[in-house]
Amino acid sequence: MSGHDHGHDDHHPDNHFTDMEARVKALETVLTRKGLIDPAAIDAIVETYETKVGPRNGARVVAKAWSDAGFSDWLKRDATAAIASLGFTGRQGEHMRAVFNTPDTHNLVVCTLCSCYPWAVLGLPPVWYKAPSYRSRAVIDPRGVLAEFGLALPADKKIRVWDSTAELRYIVVPERPDGTEGLDDEALADLVTRDSMIGTGLALSPEAGR
């Protein structure tokens, strides 16, 4: 289930729906046409369950990278294998790459529209971030988009933007917050938000995590 090249010159389509994914979309279409549901209202309900969807195991990956330098190195070199070592594998055995925030560089993942978004690791993307306008703006003006959503980065901090594909998906490893010495992996994982692993936020500080 691996060993593909990461290029786009093979015949895999960029997007794919499973039978159940397509079936739910078909129901949504029928019910919307009949005026019985409003897709925005459905999104709003799903958002209330945001923390209840998928294994969301990325936070544990990040916590281990913070606490275990050997794991962190492995994650940097071969995220797919390092993540799989924790017992987490994707449905299609997709390749993962971990990009690490540093004092000099902030990382931002932009692809949340495609069926390739790694929700199993990251959790559901924020609804606002799925709007096509954000995708293009995040590529052109990442600093501006991040500032709008309350993440003001110093002007001298570089921002790198990553666009996941069907074959290669990204997880941002945020910087470990200050004052977290002595916390165990579980407590550390509580500080790792969905937004911090997409790059639209930072990891919580221990006080804020309460």
Binding site: M20, V24, I42, I45, V46, Y49, V53, G54
Partner: peptide
């Protein structure tokens, strides 16, 4: 309720 995949949450919400 917990959902293994996003489509399950959408089906529940509908």
């Amino acid at each position: 309720p917990v959902f293994a995949e996003p489509w399950q949450a959408a089906a529940f919400a509908m």
